[in-house]
Nucleic acid binder design. Structure first.
Length: 985
DNA sequence: GAGTTTGAAACT
DNA sequence: CAGTTTCAAACTC
C-alpha cells in the first residue's frame, strides 16, 4: 500500500546515467594520462570498460544503475509475469509477447540476438590459480537469446548464462559443472524449464552454428572477452559473448582459499521459454575442471563455496535456503547496463583475488569492451572474466561487488567469526518467478588470515538483457540473470566468515538493484505503477511464504549467510526499517515479513520506492559502514572486533545511542562491529570496538598496527605481489588498463609508479576491503582499477588523495600530504595494494552504469594493510577491507567525492568525513602525513614522488568526461592533481 | 512466544 | 532542522 505508491513516484531519473559509454572515454583519458602511469597504466586493463564507470560512491549511481538496470530487467519473457514485464519495459513486453508465444517467435527479427553461449567464466575463471591456491571454477554460460537463426530460430533469443562454479573442491567443481551441465541438458530436453539449464547447457555445436550467425549479431553485444582460454570451445565465441545476454554472464572466481563460485544465470525465465526456443549455452565445465585442480588446492570448504547454478537444482539447495541476496551487484549490473545502452544487460561478476592481478585479463576484456559502448554490460562480464583470468597470475581475486546496499554490516557480522568466509549465492530465476532475474550477488569474503588476506568477492551482475531489438522485431529480450555468487575466501581456508549465501532462485536472490537500475531508464513508470498499485494490494503471495518461516535464526536475523531476514509488519518491506530493503535485497522466504512487497515480483515498486528514498537521501542505501580513511576496519571482518582493534571502519552516520552505551546491537556501530566515531552522537559511549572519544587516537594507532600487520603479512603477500607483478606486466602491455595497473604495480613495483593509484587505491581499497559485502567493485588491480581507477582516478585521485591527506592530516597531522599521499600508498614496498574502488554499490551503478561492481580489487594482503593503515587503521583483514571498502567507498567517496556528491558527503558527514571532505583543498595544501614519513622513509620516498608525478600528469590529461562523477573526478584530477603536485611538493 | 526497550527512519 | 511518531530489531522475561 503505502510504499508501493511511491513507486509511482519513482523517477526515471535513472536514465540519466550518463556513463555508459563514457567509460571508455575515461579510459582513454586515463590512458592519456597514462604517460604518467603508463607503466601501470598499461598493465591495467582498462578497466574494463565496465570499470570505468564505477564510481563508487557517487550517489548518483543509482540512477545510472537503474537505467541500466532497466536493461537488466531482464526481460524474462516468459511468462512471466506479465506484470513484471509490463511494468518494466515496454520493450520487454514486446519481447515477451514474442517469447510467450512460443517462445520463439521473435527472434527472428533480430538475428541479432543471436544466442550465444559462452562460457566465459572458464576463461576467466580459469585463470588463476596461480599459486595454486586459488582456484576457481567458473562456468558461465551465456546464451543469447535470440538465436533464432541458429538452431532454433524460433525463439527469441535466449540467453543464459550460467556459471557454475564450484570451487573448492576440484571434484566439486568438476562435478558441479558437470551437473550443471547435465542439468541443463536435461532441462533442455525438457525445454521448459529453467533457463539456467539452458544456459547451463550449452551446446557447443549450437554455438558454432550460431557463431556464424551470431557473431554478426553479437558483435553488438558485447564483448566478452575472455581471455583465457581456451577452454571454451570457441574462443571466438567467447569473446563475443553475447552481449545481450549479458546478463547472465557471471563469473566466478575464487581464489585463494576457497573458491568462489558464481554463476550466473541468464534469465531463467527467459531461459525457460528460451529453452524451448533455443538456447545455447556454453559451458565452461572445462574451466571448472581445470579449475578444479586449482580448487583442490583450495579445497577448502568447497561446499560452501560452491554454487549451484540452478537454484532449483537441488542442490543448491542446501545452501540455498539461505542465502539470498546480494546486494551490490546492482552496481555492476548497472554499469553494465548502461553501457549496453541498448539492450543489453550484462552481468558481471567480479571476484578478486588479492594477489593476482588481472590486468591481463582486463586487457583482454577491454579491448573488446572498448569496442562497444553497448557492450557495457558485457564489459562487466568481461571484466570479471578478466579478473579471473588474471587469477592465473595468482592469487586470488577479489571481486568486489559493487555493493550497494549491502549490509555490509550484516555481512560483517556474519563474517566475524570465521576467518574466512565464503559466500555463494545463487540466484536463479525461474521461469516462474520470472520476473526478472538476475541479479547478482556479490559477496565478499575476506580473511585476514595469516598471509594474506584474500578476499574474494564476487559479484555478479546480471543483466538482463533485453534486447531490444531495435525495433520491431520483437525480440525477445530477456534477461539475464545473474547469479552470483560467491565469494570465498579464505585465508586459510578455513572457514568463511559467512556461509555462502545462496540465493534462492526465485526468491530473493536478487537485489532489486538491478531492477532499480534498470528501471529508471526505460521502464515506464506507468507500468510500474500498475505493478505497484496492483500488486501492492496483493503482495501476499510472497509474503505468505515468508512470514514466519523465517524468523531469524541467528540472532542477528542473519541467515547465516550474512543476509538478514526481516520481520516487517507494517512497512511492507519497502522502507528502510526493513533490513532487507535497506540492504538492497529482496526479502526471502525465510523472512517473516507481512505484506511484503520487497519481492522480485514487485520489482517496479521496489525500485520506485527505493528511488524515492534515495531522492530524499541519496545515501540511504549506501553502506552504513565505511572505512574511515584512516582506520581500517579491523573488525569489520570478523574478528570481533572488540578486542581486535577497532576497525577503522566507522558508521557513516554515526549512532545516536542514549541508553545502550553502544554496547548493544541497538547501536548500529556496535552492530557493525565498528567503533564509534566523531560522527556519533551517542551518549556514554562504551563501544567496545572503539569509543568515539578514542576515535582519533585509534586511528593513528591503528595505522601503526596495521602497518605492522601488513608487514608481517608482506612476506606472504609478496608472492602475490609477484604475481601481481606479472599481471601488471601484462597489463602494462595492454595499455588500456592503465588504471588498473597502478594498483598492481603498487604492490610490486609500482609503488612508485602508481602512487597515485595507490593513494586512491588505498583509499579505496581499504574501504573496499571492508566492503566486501558490498559487492562488486572491481577491485582487482587490473580491472578494478580500471574501473575503479576511473572512478578513483577521477574522483579519487584527487579526492582520494585529498581524503587521504585529510585523514592523515587529521590523524597525523604531519604534513606533507602530497608526499604522503602518494607515498603513503606505497610506501613500502610491500604493498600490494589493491585498490578497490569504491563503488558504492548503488552508486557504482550510477556512475558508470557499468558494472562497477565487477570491478575488482584486490589487494594483497599488505596492500590492504597499507591501505588500511594509511587510511584507517585497518586491521589486516582483508575481509574487513573488503567490507570496509564498500563502506569506505561510499564513505570515502563521500569524503572524497564530496565534491561530486555532496550528498554522500553529507551522509558520510561524519566529522571526519566532513573534514576530509572539505579538505580536498587541504589535501593539496597539506599533505604531509605520517605515511609519508613512514612510507616515505621506507620506500616511498621515491615512490611517492613518482606517484605524484604520475598523478599530476594524469590529472591534466583528464578532461572531465563522464558524467557527474567522472567529470568530477576528472576535473578534480586535473585540477587537483596538478595542484596537488605543485602544492604538495 | 509475548512483551519491553531501543534507536533509526519517517513524518511533521 | 528539531521534535515527534512510527517502526522493527534487539532484548528480556
Amino acid at each position: 500500500m503505502d510504499s508501493p505508491e511511491p513507486s509511482s513516484t519513482i523517477n526515471p531519473t535513472l536514465s540519466s546515467d550518463p556513463t555508459p559509454s563514457q567509460d571508455s572515454p575515461v579510459f582513454n583519458y586515463l590512458s592519456n594520462l597514462s604517460p604518467i602511469q603508463p607503466v601501470k597504466g598499461a598493465p591495467v586493463v582498462q578497466g574494463f570498460p565496465g570499470l570505468n564507470s564505477p564510481h563508487l560512491l557517487f550517489t548518483s549511481p543509482r540512477i545510472n544503475a537503474q537505467s541500466r538496470s532497466s536493461f537488466l530487467k531482464r526481460s524474462k519473457f516468459p511468462q512471466l509475469s506479465s506484470e513484471a514485464f509490463s511494468g518494466k519495459n515496454e520493450d520487454y513486453n514486446n519481447a515477451i509477447t514474442d517469447s510467450d508465444g512460443t517462445g520463439v517467435s521473435v527472434s527472428q527479427s533480430r538475428s541479432e540476438l543471436s544466442p550465444y553461449v559462452q562460457k566465459l567464466a572458464d576463461n576467466n575463471i580459469s585463470v588463476h590459480e596461480q599459486s595454486g591456491s586459488p582456484i576457481r571454477c567458473v562456468d558461465e554460460l551465456l546464451v543469447n537469446v535470440s538465436n533464432s537463426e541458429s538452431s532454433n530460430p524460433s525463439n527469441s533469443t535466449n540467453t543464459s548464462l550460467k556459471v557454475a562454479d564450484s570451487i573448492p573442491q576440484s571434484p566439486n567443481c568438476a562435478g558441479d559443472s558437470k551437473e550443471s551441465v547435465a542439468n541443463i541438458g536435461s532441462k533442455d530436453a525438457r525445454n521448459d524449464e529453467i533457463p539456467e539449464d539452458a544456459a547451463g547447457v550449452v551446446v557447443e555445436q549450437a554455438e558454432e552454428d550460431n557463431k556464424g550467425k551470431s557473431l554478426s549479431n553479437q558483435k553488438d553485444v558485447g564483448v566478452y572477452s575472455t581471455n583465457n582460454d581456451s577452454d571454451l570451445p570457441s574462443p571466438d565465441l567467447r569473446t563475443k559473448i553475447v552481449p545481450d545476454l549479458p546478463a547472465h554472464s557471471s563469473l566466478h572466481y575464487h581464489y585463494g582459499d576457497r573458491s568462489m563460485v558464481q554463476l550466473s544465470r541468464a534469465d531463467h525465465t527467459m531461459l525457460d521459454e528460451a529453452s524451448n526456443k533455443q538456447i545455447e549455452s556454453l559451458e565452461t565445465a572445462h574451466d571448472c575442471r581445470n579449475d578444479s585442480d586449482k580448487i583442490n588446492i583450495m579445497s577448502i570448504a568447497p561446499d560452501e563455496s560452491i554454487v549451484q547454478h540452478d537454484s532449483q537444482t537441488k542442490a543448491g539447495q542446501h545452501q540455498s535456503g539461505i542465502r539470498r541476496r546480494c546486494l551490490q551487484f546492482e552496481d555492476a549490473q548497472q554499469k553494465i547496463a548502461p553501457a549496453s545502452s541498448g539492450s543489453q544487460n550484462a552481468s558481471g561478476i567480479v571476484s578478486c583475488s588479492i594477489p593476482p592481478v588481472s590486468p591481463a585479463i582486463l586487457d583482454v576484456v577491454e579491448p573488446v569492451s572498448s569496442n562497444r559502448s553497448s557492450t557495457a554490460s558485457n564489459r562487466p562480464m568481461t571484466q570479471l572474466a578478466s579478473s579471473s583470468v588474471n587469477s592465473e597470475s595468482f592469487t586470488v581475486k577479489v571481486p568486489k561487488p559493487s555493493g550497494i546496499g549491502l549490509h555490509l554490516n550484516s555481512i560483517v557480522n556474519g563474517m566475524e567469526a570465521g576467518s574466512g568466509a565464503t559466500v555463494s549465492v545463487k540466484s536463479t530465476e525461474r521461469g516462474n518467478l520470472s520476473i526478472h532475474g538476475k541479479k547478482l550477488t556479490s559477496m565478499m569474503s575476506c580473511h585476514p588470515s595469516e598471509n594474506m588476506k584474500s578476499c574474494l568477492i564476487s559479484s555478479n551482475v546480471v543483466g538482463s538483457n533485453l534486447t531490444s531489438g531495435d525495433n520491431d522485431s520483437k525480440h525477445v529480450s530477456y534477461v539475464s540473470n545473474a547469479e552470483t555468487v560467491v565469494a570465498s575466501l579464505s585465508l586459510n581456508n578455513t572457514k568463511p566468515f559467512y556461509e555462502p549465501v545462496v540465493l534462492k532462485p526465485t526468491e530473493h536472490a536478487k537485489p532489486f538493484y538491478e531492477s532499480v537500475l534498470s528501471k529508471p531508464t526505460e521502464h515506464t513508470p506507468s507500468n510500474k505503477r500498475k505493478f505497484n498499485s496492483e500488486h501492492i494490494d496483493s503482495p501476499m503471495d510472497y509474503n505468505q511464504s515468508s512470514p514466519k518461516k523465517k524468523r531469524k535464526k541467528p540472532s542477528d536475523g542473519n541467515d547465516g549467510d550474512g543476509c538478514k531476514r526481516c520481520n516487517c509488519k507494517k512497512t511492507k518491506c519497502l522502507k528502510l526499517y526493513c533490513d532487507c530493503f535497506a540492504a538492497g535485497v529482496y526479502c526471502v522466504d525465510s523472512c517473516s515479513c507481512q505484506g511484503c512487497f520487497n519481492r522480485p515480483e514487485y520489482e517496479d515498486t521496489v525500485l520506485d520506492v527505493r528511488q524515492q528514498i534515495q531522492s530524499r537521501n541519496p545515501l540511504a542505501f549506501a553502506p552504513k559502514i565505511v572505512q574511515n580513511s584512516t582506520g581500517s576496519p579491523a573488525n569489520v571482518f570478523g574478528e570481533d572486533g572488540a578486542s581486535s582493534t577497532p576497525s577503522s571502519a566507522r558508521h557513516k552516520r554515526g549512532c545516536n545511542c542514549k541508553k545502550s552505551m553502544c554496547l548493544k546491537k541497538y547501536c548500529e556501530c556496535y552492530q557493525a562491529n565498528v567503533g564509534c566515531s566523531n560522527g556519533c552522537r551517542c551518549e556514554g559511549c562504551k563501544n567496545v570496538y572503539g569509543r568515539k572519544e578514542e576515535y582519533g587516537k585509534d586511528l593513528v594507532n591503528k595505522h601503526c598496527t596495521t602497518e605492522r600487520l601488513e608487514r608481517s603479512v608482506e612476506e606472504n603477500v609478496e608472492m602475490v605481489t609477484a604475481t601481481s607483478g606479472l599481471l601488471q606486466s601484462d597489463s602494462r602491455n595492454q595499455s588500456n588498463l592503465t588504471p588498473l595497473t597502478p594498483s598492481f604495480q603498487c604492490s610490486d613495483r609500482g609503488k612508485n609508479v602508481l602512487k597515485s593509484w595507490f593513494t586512491s587505491g588505498r583509499y579505496i581499497s581499504s574501504p573496499e576491503s571492508g566492503q566486501a559485502n558490498t559487492a562488486a567493485y572491481g577491485l582487482s588491480p587490473g580491472s578494478p582499477r580500471s574501473s575503479k581507477k576511473h572512478d578513483i582516478d577521477q574522483e579519487t585521485t584527487d579526492d582520494i588523495i585529498l581524503d587521504l591527506v585529510t585523514f592523515d592530516q587529521e590523524f597525523h597531522g604531519n604534513a606533507k600530504l602530497a608526499n604522503e599521499i602518494s607515498p603513503g600508498f606505497h610506501v613500502t614496498g610491500n604493498m600490494d595494494y589493491l585498490m578497490a574502488l569504491p563503488n558504492s554499490q548503488d552508486w557504482a551503478s550510477n556512475s558508470g552504469g557499468q558494472l562497477i561492481p565487477q570491478t575488482v580489487h584486490f589487494q594483497s594482503t599488505r596492500p590492504l594493510c597499507w591501505h588500511n593503515s594509511p587510511m584507517t587503521p585497518m586491521t589486516q583483514f582483508d575481509g574487513s577491507g573488503m567490507h570496509a571498502l564498500g563502506l569506505l567507498d561510499s564513505n570515502k567517496k563521500a569524503y572524497v567525492m564530496e565534491d561530486d556528491t555532496p550528498e554522500i558527503l553529507k551522509d558520510s558527514s561524519i566529522p571526519q568525513n566532513g573534514v576530509k571532505v572539505n579538505s580536498p583543498n587541504k589535501k593539496r595544501i597539506s599533505p604531509p602525513h605520517r605515511h609519508l614519513n613512514e612510507l616515505g622513509s621506507s620506500s616511498s620516498g621515491g615512490g611517492l614522488k613518482t606517484g605524484r608525478k604520475f598523478i599530476l600528469l594524469a590529472v591534466p590529461s583528464f578532461p572531465p568526461l563522464t558524467p557527474c562523477i567522472e567529470s568530477k573526478d576528472v576535473a578534480a584530477h586535473s585540477t587537483d592533481n596538478s595542484q596537488k603536485g605543485s602544492s604538495s611538493k
